[in-house]
Design a binder for these strands. Structure first.
Lengths: 126, 126
DNA sequence: CAGGCTAGGTTTCCGATAGGAACCAGCAGG
DNA sequence: CCTGCTGGTTCCTATCGGAAACCTAGCCTG
């Protein structure tokens, strides 16, 4: 019995599935985590998140803004200053996100161990 | 104060970051959710997960297997039968995953509402 | 006043990836 | 002999990701 009824984040047409796909993204989780402590500037995110390009950061922030998870504050100063912060809706995500990051902190090494314990390069020839 | 020290899933070189990127993927979350109730066959996953192709499913399953989160059982029958199940390590993920899916179930509509409430097509001309 | 600096963002280009469709293996049944 | 079932792979293309260069707009320096 599979028993996954409608409303489960499985059926492609339900909003929950779209929401999962919104956040289940390489950068989304990390960016939201970065905003979980309060307003952060664009440049700060670039620094603290190692490896993200300006393009992807902007793109990710725009997507989150469009979905109502974060808010953008552009100050009319020179040089420009732009801060991002979680909306109340976005704030409801920090618990799930923190569970993920805690899991990663606790099990990251185990995952890496498994990786080089099974370096069998996909030989499922059965 | 940013205060994100090393060990946070931010610095690109730490295992936690790799672990986050492993699961923060469009299909990974959904597939793991599908396995959270016990062994499931390849074909069942295809059905219950709307929209995934066989290729992406196989690819995702192989990656999870290589990282020690799931185990593969191929029965030498005809027609072939292959079941996937969570390893103990993978089982530690179901709590975080369920928090995500619960969040999605609860807030999916709010996210969609925000989307068509702000159809401003990125006019940040400042 | 020319030129540099700042910070956020966009554009361009190219390699990597996702994803659908078609194909394959291997045996049972009509 | 031909078809179907199931898991998987190959081929091909549309899309995406990432690096680097460029842009805006004012202030600061020489």
């Amino acid at each position: 019995m599979s028993g996954f009824g409608p409303g489960d984040p499985f059926l492609a047409d339900c909003p929950a599935r779209l929401a999962v796909e919104l956040i289940a993204d390489k950068w989304t989780v990390v960016v939201l985590y970065g905003l979980s402590r309060g307003p952060v500037r664009h440049g700060e995110l670039i620094e603290v998140i190692g490896g993200i390009s300006r393009k992807m950061l902007t793109q990710t922030l725009r997507r989150l803004e469009a979905h109502g998870l974060i808010r953008r504050h552009a100050y009319a100063e020179v040089p420009p200053r732009v801060e991002y912060e979680l909306t109340p809706l976005g704030a409801t995500l920090i618990d799930p996100i923190h569970m993920l990051t805690e899991w990663a902190r606790a099990n990251g090494d185990a995952v890496l161990d498994a990786l080089d314990a099974d370096p069998e390069p996909v030989a499922h020839s059965d």
